[in-house]
Write a protein that binds this DNA or RNA. Structure first.
Lengths: 345, 345
DNA sequence: TCGTTTTTCTAGATCGATTTAGAAGAACGA
DNA sequence: TCGTTCTTCTAAATCGATCTAGAAAAACGA
């Protein structure tokens, strides 16, 4: 049963291995009759078709694109924003009959050879919100794997599909400033705070480039405001909840909370509800991304075309017709009921 | 730059290729000094570590688990239920430093060798709601790849993690029957109706095993009711919306609509809202899965532990300590405001 | 009919590692 | 001091295909 290879089939049919290979990969290189005969015999022998690894080795094509996520792989699915990206990417991958390889970014043994990014059989990689300088990025670069990032890179030969984080955040900041907010808390994700108690960070301690840029954008637009940075853990509703609890239960309540992602903001929304606070009246709340749930919750947010982002990344990775390798996507401030004038004392 | 292999490094250091290989994979098989020297030289030469495909070929381990989805790959991400499954699976995969390979199920060239399922370099596969008899399943079986399905299989040697679909649906059916509903429309996903107009189906035409079983469960619990089966396309909110529109705008309105997934039901909810119908009063609505949005929408539904399902599948695939290869997960009827007594005429 | 093109098929090298069995030298016990 | 066991390293086979160049046979044109 096992151990049936191209050779076995070739011997059984009485042709060369090359011919059997051609029967599978280049049907027009041999007569229909012979091809038929080969395929039939293969089936009879229980041959399952050319071995994937062997083919990948020899042909140099793995037929898969890798996807690299910020946090733990499982967390990626807790943010509809990340899921939307995947959906867009998957759409293009499907078009090119390419699989998506989601790689865990577990930090163990990055130096040695036994980590997923090192072992992954992929032709290219999409890098989703991975902080620059992460060891996994270096591995990819070393392996010579073409990559596209969702963060704007410094080098001119890097490929990316991004938004103008600073400008997008500034739009939101202007909106809040105009409403009179001077005391603002920003909720960020931070692996360090995961599981533990919420932490207050300085701008330098904010690891992720995009988060940092957004905070800069807010600062730029609201120079008179006091911005505090708080994290309740990784990017998830529960973290936003924890972070907001910490802030709301302290003596030093802000007049506005900005989640750097909608899931963070939705977590904060829950914390407000529990405390009987009405968003937009007692305290303003805003998010980032405009995931579907944001509309339902009446959350003011900055919309970014996430599915298009995924599609664009996919095209750069897979479609040879795509020449533009650095793409700035548009964003849009969506004002809903969760933001309102700062209450006067 | 390119073309640096184990051999190159070996030659440069002046050792055999085996030793270089050991430096990466079996550190205790050589002296620390030599290992150090090899790794340094490798870096200098720009060697990126053992080639993934070659390693996979020789060692017979790909370091990845395949995931097979019902519909188009991109659709998988439109249902939080599927995403929850992925999250659970990813959790376990991460634990075992294994990647997840999402394979598109594009129907093209199933017979030939050039489809993703055939080409995928995977050690095992998770099969999520793929209808039995699908060609891709046969390919996996042929390739001898151990698989676990989310649908209960017939053969005793198949592995699966499932729920008692019939019983789960029967619970919901009883609930509706008790409320006096006799005219029920079931919304199912159906690839055939995708993009086009909603279609009305017979039970035989319902492709997916789990959908069919659920309908049987409903029938069993409400033998006096008239059950109509309608599909607005694949499994997504938009399809539920279309299907419900078709039903609500016809002469023959039911007293209850059951979506065989929550996303279908949420689509129907939108259709009702637009028409000024209050769920639970004017018309009852129920779903399946209990995704997070269901609670927010007040949707009566059947909860299944989807993340646990993903975890369990992952364990069977990856954890050698797991012996139970057929798992029935519990379900629970969650009654919310969307279901109420059938209106009398 | 004969040379030319096209179709059909093959031999052998190669992709880049891992594995097995065993050699050479060092350390060890008596 | 001599045989034995460990440690450290290597030679050669192997994983299972695909590719390149070219041979043999068939079809074609004049």
């Amino acid at each position: 049963m096992a151990g049936v290879t191209l050779k076995t089939v070739a011997k059984a049919v009485g042709v060369s291995p090359s011919t059997v290979s051609n029967a599978y990969n280049k049907p027009d290189q041999l007569s229909t009759a012979l091809r038929e005969r080969i395929l039939t015999t293969a089936q009879e022998l229980g041959y399952a078709g050319p071995d994937a690894s062997a083919r990948a080795l020899r042909s140099g094509k793995a037929g898969a694109v890798g996807v690299l996520f910020t946090d733990k792989l499982a967390y990626a699915f807790s943010d509809p924003y990340a899921v939307g990206f995947l959906a867009g990417l998957a759409e293009v991958a499907e078009e090119f009959s390419t699989s998506l390889l989601l790689m865990p970014l577990s930090s163990t043994d990055i130096a040695g050879g036994s980590n997923a990014v090192q072992q992954a059989a992929i032709d290219a990689a999409a890098i989703f919100c991975v902080p620059g300088g992460h060891p996994a990025l270096e591995i990819l670069a070393n392996r010579g794997i073409p990559s596209v990032s969702t963060d704007r890179g410094d080098h001119p030969d890097l490929s990316w599909v991004a938004i103008d984080e600073v400008e997008a955040a500034a739009q939101l900041g202007e909106h809040l400033a105009r409403l009179g907010h001077r005391e603002v808390v920003v909720l960020v994700d931070n692996a360090g705070a995961a599981g533990g108690r919420p932490v207050e960070l300085t701008l330098d301690e904010v690891g992720y480039t995009d988060c940092e840029l957004r905070i800069r954008g807010l600062q730029k637009a609201m120079p008179d405001a006091r911005l505090r940075i708080v994290s309740g853990g990784h990017n998830a509703i529960a973290s936003g909840l924890r972070g907001a609890e910490y802030v709301l239960d302290s003596q030093d309540r802000p007049t506005a909370i900005v989640g750097l992602s909608d899931v963070q903001a939705l977590g904060a929304l829950e914390a407000m509800k529990v405390r009987g606070l009405t968003p937009g009246r007692d305290l303003s709340l805003a998010g980032f991304d405009d995931i579907p749930a944001a509309a339902a919750a009446g959350l003011t947010t900055v919309r970014q075309p996430i599915k298009d982002k995924g599609r664009a990344v996919g095209r750069i990775l897979l479609d040879p017709a795509t020449t533009e390798r650095q793409l700035m996507m548009p964003t849009q401030l969506i004002v809903r009921s969760s933001s309102g004038p700062a209450p006067r004392h």
